[in-house]
């Protein structure tokens, strides 16, 4: 340090503003996913902390107050030395400006390249572009015998093709108390970790019906079981044994021109009652293993956009 005293003022002063600046940028990015007000808040934070940071940085590089440095080093300032020092300080001010300008410009250019790239890598997963599922036509309601489960396989998204092949267990409940058609449509993925649950009971392959991409195989399940880790469910999808944390996911449905059409996929806390009279506690679709009710739901406070 004492060998080269001109170097010492170049050490940047410690400042907390960069942290605030970084938080601002983070809020902008999260805001882009969640909501516009958050973007505005983040932008405001970024600007405020950025200005403070620049002010702080330029102050710590300002060519003022060199006396304390002399005291620290025990120098006795002679007139000649002071003149040399002044000359140095002038040079240093320019060097400091150029250093800051280089870092600043480099930062701006770097951000201009990195932020859009990162956004491109991360954001599409959350905007729902890749997952837009169109409502799937499962064929005439008459293909679903009342009171019986049918293993239904279908292509969830025509554009994605085979990779979006899904299975649902569908039971026609007949008419509900207020004369509305009622279907129990259980999604086949286990809500432990997403393996395909199987119906525990005889399948009737000979009574298989197909409608376009859709195949319908009648089955008589006593319940559903998962081959991976032994999760077990009753015919309403309520957990009866094993590790699952909620009831099996379901689909909403509508009837269009006498055809059963799959609607939104949703998650289920528990189901009370059966068939058309069932009271379903319905939640936004979420991942297997994620609690939707009980105290554990606080572990997952932020819903994922685009799911």
């Amino acid at each position: 340090m004492t060998e080269n005293p001109d170097d010492t003022p170049q050490e940047p002063g410690h400042s907390l503003w960069p942290i605030g600046f970084a938080i601002g940028v983070a809020v902008v990015l999260v805001g882009l996913v969640i909501s516009w007000p958050a973007v505005v808040l983040g932008a405001a934070l970024t600007i405020v902390f950025g200005v403070l940071w620049i002010r702080d940085a330029s102050r710590s590089h300002a060519p003022v107050d060199s006396a304390p440095a002399h005291e620290l080093m025990g120098d006795t300032p002679s007139p000649g030395l002071a003149a040399a020092e002044e000359e140095h300080l002038e040079t240093y001010g320019r060097a400091g400006f150029l250093t800051l300008a280089t870092i600043g410009l480099g930062g701006v250019i770097g951000a201009a390249v990195v932020l859009p790239s990162l956004g491109f890598a991360v954001l599409p997963s959350f905007t729902g572009e890749a997952v837009a599922t169109n409502d799937v036509d499962l064929g005439p309601v008459s293909n679903f015998p009342e009171g019986e489960f049918v293993i239904t396989t279908f292509i969830g998204n025509k554009v994605q093709g085979e990779v979006s092949k899904r299975t649902a267990y569908i039971r026609n409940n007949g008419l509900s108390a207020n004369k509305e058609p009622s279907f129990t449509i259980i999604y086949s993925r286990c809500v432990h970790l997403g393996c395909p649950v199987q119906p525990n009971g005889p399948k009737f392959e000979d009574k298989k019906v197909t409608y376009k991409d859709v195949t319908l195989t009648p089955v008589q399940p006593a319940g559903f079981g998962c081959p991976c880790h032994g999760g077990a469910y009753d015919t309403e999808g309520n957990r009866t044994a094993g590790p699952p944390v909620r009831s099996l996911d379901r689909y909403a449905f509508s009837i269009v021109n006498g055809n059963l059409v799959l609607g939104k996929h949703f998650s289920v806390g528990t189901v009370v009652g059966t068939g058309a009279d069932a009271k379903i506690s319905r939640y936004r679709q979420t991942y297997p293993g994620v609690h939707v009710d009980g105290i554990e739901r606080w572990l997952y406070p932020i819903p994922v956009p685009g799911s």
Binding site: V122, P124, S125, F126, G128, A130, V131, G156, N157, Q160, G161, V163, S164, L193, G194, Q285, T286, Y287, P288, G289, V290, L299, Y300, P301, I302, V304, G306, S307
Partner: peptide, 27 residues
Amino acid sequence: ININATAPIAGPFIAQFLQGGSQIGPD
């Protein structure tokens, strides 16, 4: 991926990023 999804708070986001949507898809 679903094991990742069970991590508190960030888990579902990690899963969503990894599979590029709410299910495994072409991406």
